[in-house]
Amino acid sequence: MDKIKSDFKGEIINTETIAKDVCKIDILSPLKTAIAGQFISVLCPNTTLRRPFSIANFENQTITILFKLKGEGTSYLKKLKKGDNIDFLAPLGNGFTIENKKSLLVGAGIGIAPMLFLKNTLDKKNIKNYLITGFKSEEEIIKGSDKTIVGGSVLDYLDEIIKSENIEIIYSCGPTPVLKGISNISKKYDIPSQIAMEKVMACSIGVCRGCVIKLSKNNETINASVCKDGPVFKGSEVIWD
């Protein structure tokens, strides 16, 4: 029986440096399905634990991931060349639930990765969308957005866009302060938000409870694992520390 989720072997078919310390790799594998917001968990021979990466695109059996050079896991990935093999678990977690609504997509830094996949998906479905992303400096810009902010915070631009574009739903990925801000803005305008969270993971498939966050559901506080219950959560349900 073919299992949808599995431990895959893939082949690197393209590697590219797309911004300062940011690389893109394309992986050809037998993976059959993946949606924006889901991730893969890569076996890195030089680290104890696997490393999770958001899927930045999935087309023609090819997964694209983007990563920022940060530590030992990403330094392994950076060294991979066309033709090399890679071992990964996929497709992991729950992705974005797409709604036929005017969508605002907000990506901060490398958080742009799942937003690019989501934008691609929305475009294919002819759902009107607007992607805004923010980066610390010019040289760190990853292309593909409708609006790019350098320095400052993407949050400062959202009021205007929500009004002028008649936004009905927000999707976002980025550091916690940005996601918290998105959650507040969606409350202010009473529009739904879906946010992709990040946390250090051990198992990446929901068993170890290492990456839990707290959610408020039906007035009860519950734990949810970022890797299996997430990484995408409703912004209104996340309890911020």
């Binding site: 680290t47 104890t48 634990l49 250090v200 170890c208 290492g210 990456c211 707290k214 734990n223």
Partner: peptide, 18 residues
Amino acid sequence: RLGNEGERIFEVQGGMIN
């Protein structure tokens, strides 16, 4: 039980702390 608050995983050389 809801378990501990805060970070729960820390990777070290050849292992991990939970």
